[in-house]
Computed example of a mutant assay.
Amino acid sequence: MKVTTTTAYVDLDGDYGSVEGVEVTCDRCGRSEESFGTGDASLKRCAFLLRENCPRNEKNYYQVSE
């Protein structure tokens, strides 16, 4: 199933201070995942983590965009 998401650009705590990152939230259940960086690879990583960590054990396809 295709599931839409909401993307927010956030500051995350890194080893040496604040780092730019993204937070992607599932519009269906509200679970969110974070990743360092703001590029396409970071968005894809969040989508992968949402799929792997789904609280409903669903294997959804998450549509992420900037």
Results as ranks from 00 to 15, higher is better:
1 M>C: 07
3 V>D: 04
3 V>E: 00
4 T>P: 00
6 T>H: 14
9 Y>G: 00
9 Y>S: 05
9 Y>T: 01
9 Y>M: 02
10 V>A: 05
11 D>P: 03
11 D>C: 09
12 L>D: 02
14 G>Q: 10
14 G>A: 12
15 D>G: 13
15 D>T: 14
15 D>Y: 12
15 D>V: 07
16 Y>G: 08
19 V>L: 11
20 E>M: 08
21 G>K: 09
21 G>Q: 06
21 G>Y: 05
21 G>D: 06
22 V>L: 07
22 V>R: 01
24 V>S: 02
25 T>L: 06
26 C>I: 05
27 D>L: 07
28 R>T: 08
29 C>M: 04
29 C>Q: 00
29 C>I: 03
30 G>I: 13
30 G>H: 12
31 R>F: 15
32 S>I: 11
33 E>L: 12
33 E>G: 00
35 S>E: 09
35 S>V: 10
38 T>R: 12
38 T>Q: 10
39 G>V: 11
40 D>W: 07
41 A>L: 13
41 A>M: 14
41 A>K: 15
41 A>V: 13
42 S>N: 12
42 S>C: 09
44 K>C: 08
45 R>W: 06
46 C>P: 01
47 A>D: 06
49 L>F: 08
49 L>A: 13
49 L>Y: 08
49 L>H: 09
51 R>I: 05
51 R>M: 03
52 E>F: 06
53 N>G: 11
53 N>H: 15
59 K>Q: 06
59 K>T: 07
60 N>F: 01
60 N>I: 02
60 N>A: 09
65 S>C: 10
65 S>N: 14
